[in-house]
Each structure stands twice: as C-alpha cells, then as structure tokens.
C-alpha cells in the first residue's frame, strides 16, 4: 500500500493457454504479487474486442492488462498477432479520445513463467499507482 492508501483496480484479460496458466503457476509456486488485478479468463487474447478495453476504462478501471502467448507460440498459432492489432486499435482510439494509453498494457507471458507474470503485475500496478486514479471513474455524466 502506498502512502495515500490508493489501491488501483486493474482488469486483466488473460489467455487460457499461456498467461492464465502462468498466473496459476505463480499461485501454486507461492509467488506473491500485488492483489490489484481482477482476472478475466479468455480462450485467446484475440478474443479481447477493443470495446472490452475501452469499456473497462470508461467504467473507471485504473488499468487494463491483456496477456497472451509469446509471438510464434500461440495455442491457435496466430491469435496473438490479431490481438496485437486489436490492442493497437484500442490504444490509438484511447489516445485520441482523451483516455490515457499508459493504462493499457499488452504482455506476452508464456505458461511456464510464473515469476514473469508476478513481475509484470507488480510493475504495472506500481506504474498505475504513480499515474493515479482514472478520472473516468469520477465522471457522473460519462
């Protein structure tokens, strides 16, 4: 917990085959990481419609993490390449519509890398804590 007690809420869309499995591994390996993420499991990172990311931000999520298999290692062979394009679209729209793109992160985390998963979550949480609360969360008329 930081000095001001601000605890961000981060929505994490994790692919079933790699990043979610990595999260599972981090848990079974008893690796501690920041408890700020709310995980939503998707079968593939390409399932994440840019709308999901933008809706999370508009509804006040302080950060959105999208986790998928490393390029070339996708369970469906090319899903993560499509995911990257979708995240690029969401980030571009966010950037041009007054939302902070630093709140969106796309990471490739293989199934065997529990420590990497914990590292990404910690790093991202720290970053969001520095940026502060999402102003959309305080907008009544959004």
């Amino acid at each position: 917990m930081t000095d001001n007690g601000y605890e961000p809420k981060i929505v994490a869309f994790l692919c079933n085959w790699c990043t979610f499995t990595a999260a599972d591994l981090a848990g079974t390996s008893r690796i501690k990481y920041q408890p700020n993420i709310r995980i939503i499991k998707v079968m593939c990172s390409s399932r994440v419609d840019p709308v999901f990311i933008l809706k999370a931000l508009l509804d006040g999520a302080d950060g959105v993490l999208i986790g998928g298999c490393a390029p070339g290692d996708c369970h469906y062979s090319k899903g993560n390449f499509y995911a990257r394009r979708k995240v690029a679209l969401a980030k571009t729209l966010a950037q041009n519509m007054g939302l902070d793109t630093d709140r969106i992160r796309l990471s490739w985390i293989p199934a065997s890398e529990g420590p990497k998963f914990a590292g990404v979550v910690n790093e991202f949480t720290e970053k969001i804590k520095k940026i502060g609360a999402n102003p959309a969360g305080q907008e009544v008329f959004i």
């Binding site: 390029p71 070339g72 090319k78 390449f81 499509y82 990257r84 394009r85 979708k86 995240v87 690029a88 679209l89 980030k91 992160r105 796309l106 990471s107 490739w108």
Partner: peptide
Amino acid sequence: LPLLTYSESELETFED
C-alpha cells in the same frame, strides 16, 4: 481489413 490480417513483425511499440 486491418483486423483480419497481420504481419509477424509489426506494431511492437504497442507491446509491454
């Protein structure tokens, strides 16, 4: 259409 195609090395600035 942009979301129905990709190339393997592109848009790296949008990762991590």
